[in-house]
C-alpha cells in the first residue's frame, strides 16, 4: 500500500467515525433535551398554579377550582401501602435467591417468574386487582385493593434491587461469620442484611417513585373521581394524583378551563416522583462513595 492510498483510506475511515460519533452525540442530546423540555414546560406552566392553598385544599366547584389535597393524601396512602406489601416480600425473595437457592430448576423458575412479572403491563395488573382483590376477595375499590395491586407491580423492582445489594456484600463477610461458628440465619440477619441495607433502601425508594406515578393499576382498584372527605379506613376509595390528572385532562366539559389545575397537579406529581428518584440516586452515589469495604 503506498502512502497516498493509505492516507485516503484513513481519511474515509475517520470520516465514518466522525459521522457515527456525530449521530451518537446527537441521540444523547435529543434525549436530554426531551427530558429538559418536558420538565421546563411543566415547571413553567405549573409554577403559577401551585400555591399553599392548592396543596392543602380539596377541589371545589365540581373540580374546576380549589386544590388537590385529597389526591396527594390518597397517593401517599397507596404508595406507603404498596411498599409495606412489596418490601418484606421482595427482601425475603431476594435473600432466598442470593443466599439459599442453589442453581437449579427451582431457582430458574423463580427467576423467570420474577422477570415475567416485571413485564406484565400495568393495566393487566389493574385487571388482576379488579378480578382478585376487588371482586373475589370483596375488598371493593379501596386503598387496600389498590395498595396490594401496586405492591405486586413493584415487587420485581424491589427483588431486583435487593438481590443486587445482597450480591454486592463481599463473600468474605459471610465466610468470616460462618467460620466463627455463627449459624447461616444469624450470618444473614446480622452481617449480610445490614451491609446490604443502603442498597435495599435505595431500591425501595425507587419502587415508591414508580408506585406513586402509576395510573392504570389503580383505575379500577382504588381511585375515585372525587371524594369530599379524606378516607377513614383502608376500605375507602381515594383520589390519587395520576388519576386526577387523567380525569381533569380528559373528562368533563371544563377541560380548557381547568388547565391551570392540570399543570399544577402534574407539577406536584413530577416533583413527588422525581424528587423521590433523586433522593434514591443521591443516596446511592453517597453509599458508593462511603463504601466501607
Amino acid at each position: 500500500m503506498n502512502g497516498k492510498t493509505f492516507e485516503s483510506s484513513m481519511r474515509s475511515r475517520y470520516f465514518k467515525q466522525r459521522l457515527f460519533f456525530g449521530a451518537v452525540r446527537l441521540s444523547a442530546l435529543v434525549i436530554t433535551l426531551a427530558l429538559l423540555g418536558i420538565l421546563a414546560y411543566i415547571l413553567d406552566n405549573g409554577f403559577r398554579a401551585v400555591t399553599w392553598e392548592f396543596i392543602t385544599q380539596p377541589p371545589t366547584d365540581s373540580m374546576t377550582k380549589g386544590g388537590i389535597m385529597p389526591a396527594i393524601v390518597g397517593t401517599l396512602y397507596l404508595t406507603v401501602g404498596a411498599i409495606l406489601v412489596a418490601l418484606p416480600l421482595g427482601v425475603v425473595s431476594a435473600i432466598f435467591l442470593t443466599e439459599y437457592a442453589k442453581q437449579g430448576a427451582l431457582t430458574r423458575i423463580i427467576r423467570i417468574g420474577v422477570n415475567c412479572l416485571a413485564g406484565v403491563p400495568s393495566v393487566v395488573f389493574g385487571l388482576f386487582g379488579l378480578g382478585f382483590f376487588v371482586v373475589f376477595l370483596k375488598f371493593g375499590s379501596s386503598i387496600l385493593a389498590g395498595a396490594l395491586t401496586l405492591g405486586i407491580l413493584i415487587l420485581p423492582t424491589i427483588i431486583g434491587a435487593a438481590e443486587e445489594a445482597l450480591k454486592a456484600v463481599p463473600q468474605t463477610f459471610r465466610e468470616a461469620s460462618l467460620a466463627l461458628g455463627v449459624s447461616k440465619w444469624n450470618t444473614i440477619f446480622r452481617i449480610v442484611l445490614p451491609s446490604a441495607l443502603p442498597g435495599i433502601l435505595t431500591g425501595a425508594i425507587l419502587g415508591v417513585g414508580r408506585a406513586a406515578g402509576e395510573t392504570a393499576p389503580i383505575m379500577f382498584t382504588a381511585a375515585a373521581f372525587f371524594t369530599a372527605v379524606l378516607p377513614k379506613s383502608i376500605f375507602d376509595e381515594v383520589m390519587a394524583l395520576p388519576y386526577h390528572i387523567y380525569v381533569l385532562a380528559t373528562a368533563g366539559t371544563h377541560i380548557e378551563e381547568t388547565r391551570p389545575l392540570q399543570y399544577g397537579t402534574v407539577l406536584v406529581l413530577i416533583a413527588l416522583v422525581l424528587g423521590i428518584d433523586l433522593i434514591a440516586i443521591i443516596m446511592r452515589s453517597m453509599f458508593r462513595r462511603n463504601k466501607r469495604w
Binding site: 434525549i31 426531551a34 411543566i42
Partner: peptide, 19 residues
Amino acid sequence: VIELLAGLPSVVLGFFGMV
C-alpha cells in the same frame, strides 16, 4: 437523565402529548 426519564409517570407523558 435516562433514569429520570424512566421515572416520568406515564400519565405525565400522556398529558404532555395531549397539550
